[in-house]
Computed example of a mutant assay.
Amino acid sequence: MLGALLTVALLVAVAVLIVSATAWAIATAAGSWQGAARARAGVLVSLAGAALTGGALAWTNWLLDTGAHL
């Protein structure tokens, strides 16, 4: 159950990354520095979210494997 929830969170983070990167490219091409800055922040937040979610999934699997051996 937890693995499925973390997988969904990882997929959402990747989707937000794609949308933010596209918005960043469009805002930069249009010369909108404020929009580009917000989209860049979205890219950084989504990368951090994906890293934390992936790390949480790996850590949860490690804890489950460790608990099984005790």
Rank of each mutant, 00 (worst) to 15 (best):
A68G: 05
A9W: 00
W62D: 05
A39T: 06
L52R: 01
G31D: 11
L5P: 00
L11S: 14
A30F: 09
A39L: 10
V8K: 08
A25L: 15
T28L: 04
T7C: 04
R38M: 14
W24G: 06
G3K: 10
V19C: 05
A9L: 06
G35C: 02
L5W: 04
V19S: 10
S32L: 12
A29D: 14
T7Q: 13
G35H: 02
L5E: 12
A58L: 07
A36L: 02
A15N: 01
G42R: 12
S20R: 08
V14Q: 09
G54H: 01
A23R: 15
A9E: 01
R38Y: 14
T53K: 01
W24P: 00
A37Y: 00
M1L: 11
A50D: 00
G42K: 13
L70C: 03
A25W: 15
S20W: 07
A51W: 09
W62M: 02
A48P: 02
V43N: 04
T66Y: 09
L47Q: 09
L44H: 10
V12M: 08
V12Y: 04
T60R: 07
A41M: 08
L63P: 02
V8E: 13
A37Q: 00
G31I: 10
A27R: 05
L2H: 06
A51H: 02
A39I: 08
L17W: 06
V16Y: 09
L10K: 05
W59L: 03
S20H: 08
L47F: 09
A39F: 08
Q34N: 06
L17K: 02
W24C: 08
L2W: 06
A27M: 03
W33A: 14
L64A: 13
A56Y: 02
A4D: 15
A68S: 12
T22E: 11
D65L: 15
V16M: 06
T53A: 11
T28F: 05
T22C: 12
V19I: 13
L10C: 03
V19Y: 08
W62L: 03
V8P: 00
W62V: 03
A29Q: 14
T53I: 02
G42P: 10
A15F: 00
D65T: 14
